[in-house]
Design a protein around this nucleic acid. Structure first.
Lengths: 231, 231
DNA sequence: CGCGGCTTTGATGTTCATCAAGTAAAGTGG
DNA sequence: CCACTTTACTTGATGAACATCAAAGCCGCG
């Protein structure tokens, strides 16, 4: 069970500026009194595909994955979300039910803001609406572009891409500890688990990366860059 | 060169209700005086990847495709857009440049509404902003779900899916005339052109469809449905 | 201690892209 | 209007890329 935290006041929240730059004090109070902050442990489910959308979710801390099952019950990871981003932004404005499941892959803190309150604030404050629109647009677009890129590459290119992604977009570091299993990596880039392992081993043998369990260090960026493009 | 049409007045436009339900008369006048309507012939380019975004595009008539090139200059079709929909909605609120190219695949009429005017209207009219947000959310989400579905299928399933898509979502008819080449179909579902042809022939031999050039008739929906799920 | 899940490697077969070659259809210039 | 070129379509053969199956080692957990 996710633990409900002592709600920080939105006005004092360090992340306020990222989303609520343009709301009035009154609106902020309204949002403030219609939100709950919850803590999820690694592996815990935050929402499940099909759940009714009651809240708008904002990730304050941790790392989560959005997943979707296909007709053969195989799970696909749509994207990972870092802190200070909306999660569950996809379709929440156009569909009463969640189209995706969301799960914590690191211990995470999520802010649940009542959806009707968000809608009401957008109605009364167009500037805020525009801001939400820009964020939703940006996130959706990056997901689509990533999926097109991945679909156009083969094994080596996909592995190279995902390593770059972790290093440059998630951890900003050539060295990182992956909280994902090999199977989950496979679900991001549409490969079999075995081939993810094989390719990681190949990259290790070729001196491109160093692997120690889930600790990965990128040794040869230029080669990885080349593989991202032509692999 | 696209032909500029005599602008219809937004207030008298048959499609007004689909987008501008909640704008005031003054706002409608503003939008009206900041739009241009253009006619594009089949094959003509509407926008190119990298172009600056000056206008918000609305498809009044015809059929268009959104495309993106990968690092190997191979073109992928992101989606098709029917009339009464935004086109170029992706990323226009989050990026100064188009991330996709848009091309007419049937003779089409596109309404160009000045982007700053749209932004201004959202700022002053939150209800309108919410409406735009809902539409953008809905379209982005459907693109993502389609790509996940396609990626999770193999040849037969992909062909079955695209036939269903044309029949149920584009033409609402078991019989339709495809304005797309085999190559373009391949670009939608990530297959080689040859295999698209091979599978269509196989479906024809199996009595699932009838093909006469670009005229396609679906004869056996249940079988197609099954192939969509398990192919 | 034994069970299940995750990881790893090798062997096998399927799926698919690519190459090649030929036909048909459609635009192009004299 | 006809030869010419190009573009789309089609089928077969081949090999590469990839999933799947199988087996074994490794941990964490009851």
């Amino acid at each position: 069970m996710p633990e409900v935290l002592n709600n920080a006041n939105c006005n004092e929240c360090a992340f306020k500026s990222l989303l609520f730059e343009n709301v009035t004090d009154g609106e902020l109070d309204l949002l403030d009194s219609n939100k709950v902050e919850k803590q999820f442990l690694k592996g815990e489910s935050i929402v499940s595909e099909g759940d009714l959308v009651h809240e708008f979710l904002y990730l304050k801390k941790g790392l989560v994955k959005l997943t979707k099952s296909d007709e053969s019950e195989r799970e696909h990871i749509i994207c990972l979300c870092k802190p200070l981003n909306f999660i569950g932004f996809l379709s929440v404005f156009s569909n009463p039910n969640y189209q995706y499941s969301i799960q914590a892959i690191d211990d995470s803190v999520v802010c649940f803001i009542n959806m009707n309150t968000i809608r009401e604030t957008i109605r009364t404050n167009g500037e805020f609406g525009l801001e939400v629109l820009e964020k939703v647009s940006s996130i959706s677009d990056s997901i689509i572009q990533k999926r097109v890129m991945i679909a156009s590459k083969q094994m080596r290119g996909r592995i190279a891409y995902i390593l770059m992604y972790f290093s440059k977009e998630i951890y900003m570091n050539p060295k990182f500890n992956l909280p994902l299993s090999r199977k989950e990596i496979a679900q991001i880039i549409d490969l079999s688990t075995e081939n993810v392992i094989r390719m990681l081993s190949e990259f290790r043998k070729d001196g491109i990366i160093r692997i120690d369990g889930n600790d990965i260090t990128i040794l040869d960026y230029p080669k990885l860059e080349r593989l991202t493009k032509f692999g």
